[in-house]
Design a protein around this nucleic acid. Structure first.
Length: 460
RNA sequence: UGCCGCUUAGCUCAGUCGGUAGAGCAGCUGACUGUUAAUCAGCGGGUCGUAGGUUCGAGUCCUACAGCGGCAGCCA
């Protein structure tokens, strides 16, 4: 056994008549008088291999061990299939059962399991159609993202997971400590006595570190796990999620938007090319509008409008929103959805938000009221990308840090970037799982990551 | 964290007015010579989320708690 063997995906591309072996897990077995059909899948592709077992080829005791969930190797001949449903099938000559799966207790069956139930058996759900497809698409998307940036000369950088800087002042952070918080002790342990000698946390974003690398490597990106200790239990939030964050020196907000748009189009096109079977399945069984919206994203330019224009559209829409719209508010989910789903019917990039609802590092516009921020909003899921041109002018940045009451001394290294060889630069962040929800049509973010982490939930 | 909903067989669910438990699928046994969500016949399978309360009697009504889900906030 070796990785250089033939996978089920490869068998479908071979000419009939060859002696082959197929390794995988049994989806179902159907018996008729004198013949049995076994569906085998190894995760290499969506389609199952149909194995045909004629009477007498495999002894009855062995055949009975070939049940749903069992791990097997079938040896035999690849033949053209006489029946509809598959072009080729494997005519079995022998079998090796590597691992049985007791049918009375194996929890997966061929129909009727809810995603909530499958989440409880997340270690087994990948053997089903939906989650096999989800994790193939996840892997292919991950590759496509690295390829996109590599093709354009972006360097993949690796900012720390454990950080002492509260990057954006946004989002609750997980403490990292070797002090047992549940141990009763006479007096509190001070941060100086802890492992790092100061309070330290799991990162909520690699952006600030990415900026430092961009001002030297020019074009960089991160792609890794980030952590938020927010107590939010929704279908769009995770405590541990993966984020893609490119950062470009010598790049304006317009260049940033161009990159974001090209990024989404290129990666989605890659998936349409490489994962068509899986995406067809999602389109058929999960989200009927999936392929048409993905095609639309690939083939149309994104709408661009300023926050101020968007507020105008919302106010003159005639819609009755739960939260009234006025200039200066942070747009609510209902507003974002109306803009992208009703107003323009495709992704929208909103720019130039009021400074008071955005982070300190975003570049101030001439009006002194708005900053060079952008959010990419997509139909069905809302905000998928958030980014900005960064404030490269030292005095303006210091003024913002002061204005927002942030500790100036903690940002000494970040301010050094503006002191020594500052450059106009821009970047954005994309939530990888949000992106996967968009391209698979899956409705719950917990179903696009193998093992989700959320408040009160850290199983497996 | 707030509001709402759900929790009954391995899974998906039904359960009327409060009167002691039902279906489909899965499983098991058998039938069928090409099935592909196979089909057909039969069989087994339940502390109705937990703890209290009301009642002669609770799956059903009330309270608390837990788990799950939806929406909202926060955000990616």
């Amino acid at each position: 056994m070796d990785y250089r063997r033939t996978y089920i995906r490869d068998l479908f591309a071979q000419n009939p008549g060859q002696e082959v072996s197929a390794y995988g897990w049994v989806k179902t077995r159907r018996d008729s008088k004198g013949i049995s059909f076994v569906q085998v899948n190894d995760g290499s592709c969506f389609q199952d291999l149909q194995v045909v077992v004629d009477e007498g080829v495999i002894d009855e005791a062995t055949l009975k061990r070939i049940t749903t969930g069992a791990c097997v190797r079938f040896d035999g001949t690849l033949v053209e299939s006489p029946a509809a449903g598959q072009a080729v099938e494997l005519k079995a000559a022998g079998v090796e059962v590597y691992g049985e799966a007791d049918p009375a207790t194996y929890p997966l069956q061929k129909k009727g399991a809810s995603f909530e139930f499958l989440r409880e058996i997340a270690h087994l759900r990948v053997r089903g159609n939906t989650f096999g497809a989800v994790f193939r698409v996840r892997a292919e998307a991950s590759f496509a993202i690295h390829k996109f940036f590599n093709d354009r000369g972006f360097k993949n950088i690796h900012p720390p997971i454990i950080t002492a800087s509260d990057a954006e002042g946004a989002g609750a952070m997980f403490h990292v400590t070797t002090v047992d918080p549940f141990l009763a002790r006479p007096k509190p342990v001070s941060p100086e006595e802890d492992f790092f000698g100061k309070p330290s946390f799991l990162t909520v974003s690699g952006q600030l570190e990415a900026e430092t690398l961009a001002l030297g490597l020019t074009n960089v990106y991160t792609f890794g796990p980030t952590f938020r200790a927010e107590n939010s239990g929704t279908s769009r939030h995770l405590a541990e999620f993966w984020m893609v964050e490119p950062e470009q020196a010598f790049c304006s907000l317009e260049g940033n938007m161009n990159l974001a748009e090209e990024f989404l189009r290129t990666v989605i096109q890659h998936l349409l090319d490489k994962c068509s079977e899986d995406l067809d399945f999602f389109n058929k069984r999960i989200e009927p509008e999936l392929l048409s919206t993905l095609d639309h994203v690939v083939n149309s330019n994104f709408e661009r409008m300023t926050y101020t224009e968007a507020v105008g559209h919302l106010q003159s829409s005639g819609e009755s929103f739960e939260f009234p719209v006025e200039w200066g508010i942070d747009l609510q989910s209902e507003h974002e959805r109306w803009l992208t789903e009703q107003k323009v019917g495709r992704p929208v990039i909103l720019t130039d938000y009021p400074k008071d609802i955005k982070a300190f590092y975003m570049r101030m516009n001439e009006d002194g009221k708005t900053v060079r921020a952008m959010d990419v909003l997509a139909p069905r899921i809302g905000e998928i990308i958030g980014g900005s041109q960064r404030e490269e002018r030292l005095s303006k940045l210091e003024a913002r840090i002061h204005e927002m009451g942030l500790p100036m001394e903690a940002y000494w290294w970040y301010l050094d970037l503006r002191r020594f060889g500052s450059a106009p630069h821009s970047g954005f962040g994309l939530g990888f799982e949000r992106f996967l929800m968009y391209v698979t049509g899956m409705k719950n973010i917990r179903d696009v990551i193998p093992y989700h982490r959320a408040p009160g939930s850290a199983d497996f």
